[in-house]
Design a protein around this nucleic acid. Sequence first.
DNA 1: TCTGGGGTCCTCTGTCGA
DNA 2: TCTGTCGACAGAGGACCC
Length: 352
Amino acid sequence: MLERCVAHLDMDAFYVSVELRRRPELRGLPVIVAGSGPRAVVTTASYEARRYGVHSAMPASRARRLCPEAVVMEPDFRCYREASREVMAILRDHVEIVEVVGLDEAYLELTGLPAPRASMRLIREQVRLKTALGCSVGVGPNKLVAKVASDAEKPGGFVVLTREQACQRFACAPCGLLPGIGPKTGERLRRRGIETIAQLAATELEVLSGSFGPRQGLELARRARFEDDTPVSEERKVRSESREATFDRDLSDRQELEAQLRRLAAQLAEALVAQRRQGRTVGIKVRLDDFSTHTRARTLRGPVRSPQEITAVALELLERFAPKRPVRLLGVRVAGLEQHQGEGVAQLTLGC
DNA sequence: TCTGGGGTCCTCTGTCGA
DNA sequence: TCTGTCGACAGAGGACCC
């Protein structure tokens, strides 16, 4: 049986690096990509800014306080998407199966290649030469090892590990290092005295299943041993699409909320029509001023995609939910997506 | 000092029809 | 005809990821 070999390629501070291609005079300075609104958060920070404690998802106002001399730039996602396409095209020139994950990372199936490591070094060099963007690479027997390895020596890392070496190298690392173990699960593990990956790996499956349920328990145990047999797959089926907005100030006025909902529904419908997609489930998301998040959804008899159809259902759901507190965020979502044929407008078929 | 946007997947619960 | 069971599906919330 052919031994499996997978690589994970992760662009280093991708959005900032793309900005620095346009403004090379900022190289070496703390640079933050963040929105400008009062509730904006940091999208990415350069490694220089990270030294001040600035990191992704931090409120932009706090980032500015931590690093007042930082150059703050508005995100330009059209430009990042274009840069991402450049990078992914280079990967596909060299490897048949490439699984793109977001704009700045990808898994590459290397099984069967005569010299997988040399291939990845070549690919990394090509990315650097053709795009002037740096990346980190992890290589291993599965996606999990490759992913953790690519993160281990950022930026500019190139880490090759067997499963056993991964277990050894990250034995003392916190469980949260493993993809899929976020703050909540990490905290639940800590409450049970499980701090490190080695401790997690040594925990009886029955204990984990008892605390987390049979499915998640087994998954945690497997991850702690760096076991993973998920394939590298090119196809990622889109299941839903949504538009949401956090308001600069909380909204209580019903008419204002309805206007925002109409605007979001129109944006979403425009995107769906452009992609020739339609969906059967329409949902809304409401975040109140106490940060509690509520969703309401309705599955229709037939698929919809026009602004009128999506807006009608979304407004009905909002009316039914009738927020009791000021609203901080409003979102519209269409799920159960499928491709549609022809240009005819689908009938609005409410009720089940 | 508060906490974005756009996604996926999982779990729990309720409903409904066979 | 009534009742219990089971699976499918929908809805809601939550965790996680980039």
